[in-house]
């Protein structure tokens, strides 16, 4: 049973230049205890989507479609109903731990607040839970850290505090938006290890937003690749890396310096992502796609269609044969 079900989500921002469709018809679902990775470059709509789920977008945005947490439809909920869910049933971790904690409040005050916003417990009880929460994410001497201000902690420690805060009320859905991007590589490894340990304990559905295919491979069960507001490919993590199906995914994989040591030149995707103010008429990736055909430039990409391998699905005009052949060639090249 899927814990989070998103159907045909459309998030549009009103701007002075006209409406910008940051998320344009996205559907996905995540089960409890599973990690879904959302991969894409900046501006692909992955953050707008996570903020839509949390109900954290500014008033200039309209959200349409359906977002269900368990049985409950979130779209159309009042502000206060959403507020009661936020930080309780669904929680979020952000990219930059340096700026995500309030600089003038002690760590303890911020954690206790998170507990008492949702649980009718005494300050003492909330404090005990906060200390336990800090201990659970591997913060040494948590009692002392309760009295610290954020600036007294390192980046890795702050991100642990953010994770502890998100997990305090045992959320059913956890959204992590680039949780390790701002961290050094050894700290990133610590946080990834922590998240791997926690995922089995907390039994929440986790949505991991990232641009880093390495982080996806480390932590996710399933992956959705987003490009220009749409999901272009969805698969289990093994399937995605073994049989990538969409030319954009191929481009991403081929341009990773760590995976392509042997190649003379690093593969590059030409050009830049399109403006969402005026997206291309056909498939949104067509202008950058080396395989683009006339139909790609004329007709919008088809809906996500099963590739015949498990749950994998792709939104592309290319035929299954071409996609299998090119995908295999890419994987084969890397083995060489």
């Amino acid at each position: 049973m899927a814990l989070l079900t998103v159907e045909n989500l459309r998030t549009t921002f009103r701007t002075d230049d006209g409406p910008v469709g940051a998320v344009d018809g996205v559907s996905l679902s995540v089960d409890a205890g599973k990690v879904l990775g959302i991969v894409g470059e900046s501006g692909c709509g992955k953050s707008a989507m996570s903020l839509s789920i949390m109900g954290l977008l500014p008033k200039t945005a309209t959200v349409e479609g359906s977002i269900r947490l368990g049985e409950r439809e979130l779209i159309g909920l009042s502000g206060s109903e959403l507020r009661r869910l936020r930080g309780d049933d669904m929680a979020m971790i952000f990219q930059d731990p340096m700026t995500s904690l309030n600089p003038v409040m002690r760590i303890g005050e911020q954690l206790i607040e998170a507990v008492r916003l949702h649980q009718k417990v005494s300050k003492v009880e909330a404090r005990q839970r906060a200390v336990a929460g800090l201990a659970a994410v591997g913060i040494p001497s948590p009692e002392d850290r309760m009295r610290s201000y954020p600036l007294e902690l390192s980046g890795g420690m702050r991100q642990r505090v953010m994770i502890a805060m998100a997990l305090l009320n045992r959320p059913r859905l956890l959204i992590a938006d680039e949780p390790t991007t701002a961290l050094d590589v050894t700290t990133q490894a610590q946080i990834l290890e922590l998240m791997r340990d926690l995922r089995s304990e907390v039994d929440a559905a986790i949505v991991l937003i990232t641009h880093d295919l390495g982080v996806v491979a480390e932590l996710c069960d399933e992956v959705a690749v987003m490009y220009a507001g749409r999901i272009v490919e969805r698969a289990t993590v093994d399937e995605l890396f073994a049989h990538p199906q969409h030319p954009y995914t191929w481009g991403l994989l081929a341009s990773l310096p760590g995976r392509n040591l042997a190649s003379e030149r690093l593969h590059q995707i030409p050009g830049t992502p399109p403006s969402l103010l005026r997206p291309p008429a056909g498939c949104r990736f067509a202008p950058r796609c080396p395989f683009a055909m006339d139909v790609c430039r004329a007709d919008p990409a088809p809906a996500l269609t099963s590739t015949g391998r498990g749950s994998a699905a792709v939104a592309c005009h290319l035929t299954q044969d071409v996609r299998d052949r090119e995908g295999a060639r890419l994987s084969g090249e890397e083995q060489a």
């Binding site: 949390m54 954290l56 206060s80 507020r83 009661r84 869910l85 936020r86 930080g87 309780d88 929680a91 979020m92 952000f94 930059d96 700026t99 995500s100 904690l101 309030n102 600089p103 607040e113 998170a114 916003l117 949702h118 953010m162 805060m165």
Partner: peptide, 12 residues
């Protein structure tokens, strides 16, 4: 960012 964090916690 920390204001967004506060909202994400469910603060009114």
């Amino acid at each position: 960012d920390y204001v967004r964090t506060a909202r994400a916690k469910g603060a009114g």
